[in-house]
């Protein structure tokens, strides 16, 4: 076949075939290229949206910073009225500040930090004593049948000392037996009562929660209790002597 006849053959081919020259893309790749452009565009828009969401606050701030800040709100008053209003307002603020101050307990009070297991004994704004304690372990104990569960958490908020006890005796609740893998005895069985495990003193905070001593002093500063607050012997004596019935205990 000579060159002329080859050219003639090429000239007779459909248009699509004529552009299939080596090193040149075929027309079938046209559609994917548009598809790729669309895909790239969509991805770019998604990326821009996410980026704008992330940096929106900064840019909004820049935009706000360009806007002028106006002066104090308008009040149509004479000079005399202003002076009177200023005096009234000052008096009002003073009385409110006094009211706020009145909320600070006059008696000694205890602050318990259950995150760091620390206590601070306070009088007004003065720190009387600081020390370690143990609070709730945040354990959820579940019976094997899943019917009963107990959450060992120290309650947060404001509590009051309901009662002060010397040589407290622990009446073991059901969970104390279940946790030890022991059978639960009847409610008033003798084996429920344990002596000399709560230290020399206990302060009853109500709802079954106590501030008491411990035999496990190495755990002080760690969250290991069943909800009560455990103190070392020295701290327990100080707290027992400083707080009276009705004193406030703040737990956070």
């Amino acid at each position: 076949m000579n060159i002329d006849s080859q050219q003639e053959r090429v000239g007779n081919l459909p248009e699509e075939e004529t552009i299939s020259i080596p090193g040149q893309k075929s027309p079938s790749t046209r559609k994917p290229s548009i598809f790729i452009s669309l895909l790239a565009g969509t991805v770019a828009i998604i990326v821009i949206t996410v980026l704008l969401t992330v940096i929106a606050d900064r840019f909004r701030d820049l935009f706000i910073a360009l806007l002028p800040v106006k002066s104090a709100p308008a009040m149509t008053m004479t000079e005399k009225q202003y002076a009177k209003e200023l005096q009234n307002q000052k008096r009002l603020i003073d009385s409110q500040k006094k009211k706020l101050k009145g909320f600070t307990p006059v008696q000694n009070y205890l602050i318990i930090n259950s995150s760091e297991n620390k206590i601070i004994l306070m009088k007004g704004n003065k720190v009387l004593h600081e020390g370690l304690c143990s609070t709730g372990s945040y354990t959820v104990l579940k019976t094997s049948d899943g019917k009963e569960k107990w959450v060992f958490q120290t309650p947060r908020g404001m509590l009051r000392v309901q009662n002060k006890l010397v040589d407290p005796v622990w009446r073991m609740p059901d969970w104390a037996f279940i946790e030890e893998g022991l059978p639960v005895p009847p409610p008033f069985a003798a084996e429920r009562y344990e002596y000399n495990v709560l230290g020399d003193y206990a302060l009853d905070l109500g709802r079954g929660y106590l501030i008491h001593g411990t035999l496990y002093k190495r755990f002080l500063g760690m969250p290991v209790t069943h909800g009560c607050v455990r103190l070392g012997d020295q701290e327990l004596k100080i707290v027992y002597d400083s707080l009276s019935i009705g004193s406030r205990v703040f737990i956070y």
Partner: peptide
Amino acid sequence: KHPFKLKNAPKDTLEALQMKQDIMQP
């Protein structure tokens, strides 16, 4: 916010003893 740990009640005193040994450090 609240670091709760779930613990299933031990079947016997031996299992309870094993559970006690792995007290988690903060």
